[in-house]
Design a protein around this nucleic acid. Structure first.
Lengths: 304, 304
DNA sequence: GATCTTTCATCTGTTTATCTTATGAGTTCA
DNA sequence: TGAACTCATAAGATAAACAGATGAAAGATC
């Protein structure tokens, strides 16, 4: 495969095939006529057969040259198209982005961030996966997720974390619970209650923060994997719970939410694989940060 | 369009995408690792986005790189296929060849030459056009014909002629004609007869040679454009005719062919546009010359 | 945890390819 | 015949690609 043919040669040949005139073709290409002449000779030598028949009044294409002209035009167009497509992917305007999120994060600004991203990048296919914090970290490392929104993300090797948002806790009580009459609660008020909580294995830091806020020992009567479930279980009288403030969005009959007077905070953390250069990830991160850091219209605890 | 991308860059990138390893890819390409590294940098700069993510253990493709790898592979394959096709056309193994012939030439070795050419070049589409000598010359200049087999081709500017074959004349007589009883005739024997002949405008030299052979003045009672017609007209008693020896192939009831004792010869000439470089023409010429110059099994005058 | 190995980037000088300018040979046109 | 035009060729200048040596960073090995 010596004497390799380059795109330059095809470009030169096409210019010549279009004008059938060395001098004019060279002018179109912005090179000297002699340079074009040499390029053509090189191309013909590489192919092994003449592509144009030179006359004193210009050139005519041979059958082989005629074919090459049409094929080369297609080749150049294809290369241009491919590069354009590659650039679109490189710029993050196109592609597939798989985003994981902890269930409670969907109760924060995340939907707004998603909508904003979709509007800005209509070419990107967004795949959303609700997973627990622990599973998201695994999925990020696997490559199954490109980016994740964690509830209280544990620092983890190979994962870059950014805290987007922090919020207070609130207590979730059955409507008929004695404490339900109080407008505010302190963690100590809940001492001795039975708790419905997330499993620690699904989010160690989230659990530990909850436990720190309440103060051990905790009597956990039920673990549940999703907040709607927790709220329903509380409504059924199985126990009480505490949750990030945003969970108040999940108002359900028979359940009341009460702010918890504590400095404890739960965070929403954005996680990406360390060193990720996927431009989709970068673009999505920017949108998400803009929406979370602006903190528009934080959901308030609606009295039930 | 500065920083143009060349096929070389795509080759380098593909090698890297296949091995995900600069050193090994460079070895496959037969260049130094540093050269490959530079080519990749150049390609990425031209595209504007990274194509691979370098790590200390090798490289991984970015989404953009992943796309480019698949597209570039297709591009290289296309270029190779195109060049191969162009080479086939350049070598005359493929294409369309339009061949003209005077009707009588089809009674000589031409069918054998055609068959031989078809067998050797199955990729070539052969288009056959029966035309008179005069019309063939026009068609050759127009480009409507690539190559022509003329009966007694007139030298003509812009046309290269090669004589392939020369043959004697024979007389065509009605079966009941007084001269039909003779095994051989001399031109003088035909003096005073009425003749059925080709029109001079359809082949000046052919007509003149015929006239020279017979000696003027000729009494021409009918002109006809094709030999089967001439033979039929003779059979109908309209007159006599003389024809190239090969016309004896057209045996018809009521007609006899008699060798003419004369040194006059009629030729089959191969005509091509001067300076033609079409390889199909070259290849066909070679086959045709081989068949005509070998003169296999010249058609003999069959007694009727 | 210090050393070794692997891997890619960078630097430097050399080779190769391409370009420009100038010139030549062959036609066509006046 | 001379002028105008075509493409080819020659020679020097410029830019690109190359090989080889070195360096930095991150695993791997002990």
């Amino acid at each position: 495969m010596k004497d390799p043919i380059e795109i330059r040669h095809l470009r030169c040949f096409l210019a010549l095939a279009n004008t059938l005139h060395f001098t004019r073709a060279a002018a179109n290409l912005g090179i000297a006529q002699s340079a074009l002449s040499l390029q053509l000779q090189r191309l013909e030598r590489a192919i092994g057969y003449p592509l144009v028949q030179r006359t004193t009044r210009g050139v005519t294409l041979t059958p082989a040259g005629s074919l090459l002209a049409s094929r080369a035009a297609g080749t150049l167009r294809k290369v241009e198209d491919d590069l354009e497509h590659v650039r679109r992917i490189g710029s993050g305007q196109e592609g597939i982005l798989t985003v994981g999120f902890s269930g409670s994060v969907m109760l924060t600004q995340l939907p707004l961030a998603i909508e904003s991203f979709r509007a800005s990048y209509p070419g990107v296919e967004l795949r959303l996966r609700e997973l627990t914090t622990a599973r998201q970290l695994v999925a990020l490392r696997d490559g199954a997720l490109d980016l994740a929104f964690l509830r209280d993300g544990d620092p983890s090797p190979g994962i870059t974390l950014t805290t987007l948002h922090s919020e207070r806790y609130l207590a979730i009580l059955p409507e008929r619970h004695p404490l339900a009459t109080r407008r505010k609660l302190r963690p100590a008020d809940l001492r001795g209650e039975s708790f419905v909580l997330y499993s620690r294995t699904e989010g160690a830091l989230a659990f530990d923060r909850t436990a720190d806020c309440l103060g051990a020992p905790l009597r956990i009567v039920q673990e549940a994997p999703q907040w709607p479930t927790v709220v329903r279980l509380v409504g059924a009288g199985i126990g009480v719970s505490i949750a990030p403030a945003c969970v108040a969005e999940l108002a359900m009959p028979g359940v009341v939410f009460r702010p918890l007077q504590s400095d404890a905070r739960t965070t929403v953390d954005l996680a990406v694989p360390a060193g990720a250069i996927n431009p989709l990830v970068t673009n999505f991160r920017l949108k998400a940060r803009a929406h979370f850091l602006a903190r528009p219209a934080l959901p308030t605890v609606r009295p039930v």
